[in-house]
Amino acid sequence: MTNSTLQLGAEPIAARKPAAEVRLEGVGKRYGKVTAVKPLDLVIEAGSLVTLLGPSGCGKTTLLRMIAGLEQPTDGRLLIGGRDVTHLPPGERDVSMVFQSYALFPHMTIAQNVAFGLISGGMAKDAALAKADLALDQVGLPGLGGRLPSELSGGQQQRVAVARALVLEPSVLLFDEPLSNLDARLRRRMREEIRDLQQRLGVTVVYVTHDQSEALAVADKIVVMRNSEIAQIGSPRELYQQPANTFVASFMGECNNVKADLADVAGGRGRLTLGSSQVLTAVPDGLEQGQVDVAIRPEAVRVLPKDSGCLQGVVSHATYMGSCIEYEIETDIGGLFVVCGDIAGMRAKGDPVGLDFVASGIAVVRP
């Protein structure tokens, strides 16, 4: 086994303590006249991994810090495992946090870094170091306890930070953009390992990120935040395929925002006209027929020969991406960004094309 692989057969070090539900009831945060988080309600189920996703300044990190006890709410109350912890300090909440910077002590060995919280809490040094070794085994770093942080790669240091949090056996584990300092390839591998570790331990995880691909990859549920409040909550599939509004649609990945005509609205569904094509699609509650906003995913557009399909267009830009071609195509309903897997049939700038649509990638949204 290499250090880049977690020990799937290892005995979970945090299995002795059940995961806890996190419940926020009207929780908000103000700094004078500035509102960082508008009062909101949120339930994070025990044993689930929930991602707080949104742009910088939307309130997601402030919300995480309130759960951790590093910030005090100015409104509402916060419960962990059914216990009101609103005014308790971080050390009495049974949570551990993995920070963006990792914050490892450079003069301490890896084992000493991991054991630091246990020793500070009164555990005997030998016992704490033994637990630290188990925690390092759990995150795929066996035998590295004697090294210094400077002797490890960025990905290994990230695992050390996770081990330091896990060794405290928390009911809730908090991550504050833990992969932002890693390169793209390592981020992809580490997010898979974090997800695998969470599922094996069954611990409740609240995970902050601004990277939608990271959120889609790890989360049971995603909380999309905007302007200090919740924009939408749902599973990764729900948010990608059925965004509530244009902001969520655009933030959850590449998206074409166009206008289209909606008719025959009944039972939460309606008939959408795109070019000469009519697509049956879900309709948000209370939305009536007429011109509506539509989100079309790039992979939901099929590129066909000229005079085929339901809509005609002209390629304005074509980019070879290795596994696919990215097109920008001008049409009567506006410019469309399209991802096409037909590498051999790559069109050039100025080529006329026909287009058709896959209904599963189209959603009627609110502005």
Rank of each mutant, 00 (worst) to 15 (best):
residue 329 I to V: 15
residue 306 K to L: 02
residue 329 I to Y: 09
residue 317 H to R: 09
residue 293 D to V: 07
residue 313 G to I: 06
residue 311 L to N: 02
residue 333 I to D: 03
residue 297 R to W: 04
residue 324 C to H: 14
residue 290 G to V: 12
residue 331 T to E: 11
residue 321 M to P: 07
residue 333 I to S: 03
residue 315 V to S: 00
residue 300 A to Y: 11
residue 311 L to G: 03
residue 311 L to A: 01
residue 324 C to M: 12
residue 310 C to T: 08
residue 330 E to S: 15
residue 298 P to M: 05
residue 303 V to I: 12
residue 329 I to R: 09
residue 291 Q to F: 04
residue 296 I to S: 01
residue 309 G to N: 09
residue 314 V to Y: 02
residue 299 E to P: 04
residue 290 G to M: 13
residue 326 E to K: 02
residue 334 G to E: 07
residue 330 E to R: 15
residue 324 C to T: 08
residue 311 L to V: 02
residue 321 M to C: 14
residue 292 V to C: 14
residue 328 E to G: 03
residue 306 K to R: 14
residue 301 V to W: 05
residue 299 E to Q: 14
residue 292 V to H: 13
residue 334 G to L: 09
residue 288 E to Q: 15
residue 288 E to N: 12
residue 328 E to K: 05
residue 290 G to S: 12
residue 326 E to F: 00
residue 313 G to C: 08
residue 334 G to M: 12
residue 300 A to R: 12
residue 334 G to F: 09
residue 306 K to A: 14
residue 329 I to S: 10
residue 307 D to L: 09
residue 295 A to R: 09
residue 310 C to N: 04
residue 332 D to M: 07
residue 296 I to H: 03
residue 328 E to N: 04
residue 293 D to F: 12
residue 332 D to E: 15
residue 330 E to M: 14
residue 289 Q to C: 07
residue 297 R to M: 03
residue 324 C to S: 14
residue 310 C to P: 01
residue 319 T to F: 03
residue 295 A to G: 11
residue 309 G to F: 02
residue 301 V to H: 05
residue 313 G to E: 07
residue 304 L to G: 04
residue 297 R to I: 03
residue 305 P to E: 15
residue 297 R to N: 06
residue 289 Q to P: 11
residue 327 Y to P: 01
residue 319 T to D: 08
residue 306 K to D: 10
residue 326 E to V: 01
residue 303 V to A: 08
residue 308 S to Q: 15
residue 297 R to F: 03
residue 318 A to Q: 04
residue 291 Q to C: 10
residue 322 G to T: 08
residue 305 P to F: 08
residue 333 I to Y: 06
residue 331 T to M: 10
residue 330 E to K: 13
residue 304 L to Q: 09
residue 330 E to D: 15
residue 300 A to T: 09
residue 299 E to I: 06
residue 302 R to C: 08
residue 326 E to Q: 10
residue 288 E to M: 12
residue 306 K to W: 03
residue 291 Q to G: 11
residue 292 V to F: 13
residue 302 R to Y: 05
residue 293 D to I: 05
residue 290 G to R: 12
residue 302 R to L: 13
residue 295 A to E: 12
residue 309 G to Y: 06
residue 317 H to E: 10
residue 332 D to R: 10
residue 315 V to K: 00
residue 323 S to N: 15
residue 323 S to L: 13
residue 326 E to P: 00
residue 325 I to A: 00
residue 324 C to A: 14
residue 312 Q to N: 06
residue 313 G to A: 10
residue 333 I to L: 14
residue 309 G to L: 07
residue 299 E to L: 05
residue 307 D to M: 05
residue 323 S to Q: 15
residue 334 G to S: 08
residue 298 P to E: 04
residue 297 R to Q: 06
residue 308 S to H: 12
residue 319 T to W: 02
residue 318 A to W: 02
residue 303 V to Y: 05
residue 326 E to I: 00
residue 300 A to S: 13
residue 304 L to P: 09
residue 288 E to Y: 06
residue 310 C to D: 10
residue 312 Q to V: 03
residue 329 I to P: 08
residue 334 G to W: 08
residue 331 T to S: 12
residue 294 V to Q: 07
residue 312 Q to S: 14
residue 318 A to C: 11
residue 309 G to Q: 08
residue 327 Y to W: 09
residue 309 G to D: 07
residue 316 S to A: 08
residue 294 V to S: 09
residue 299 E to T: 11
residue 316 S to W: 00
residue 302 R to D: 13
residue 293 D to A: 13
residue 318 A to I: 01
residue 324 C to E: 15
residue 325 I to H: 00
residue 293 D to L: 07
residue 315 V to Q: 00
residue 333 I to N: 05
residue 314 V to E: 15
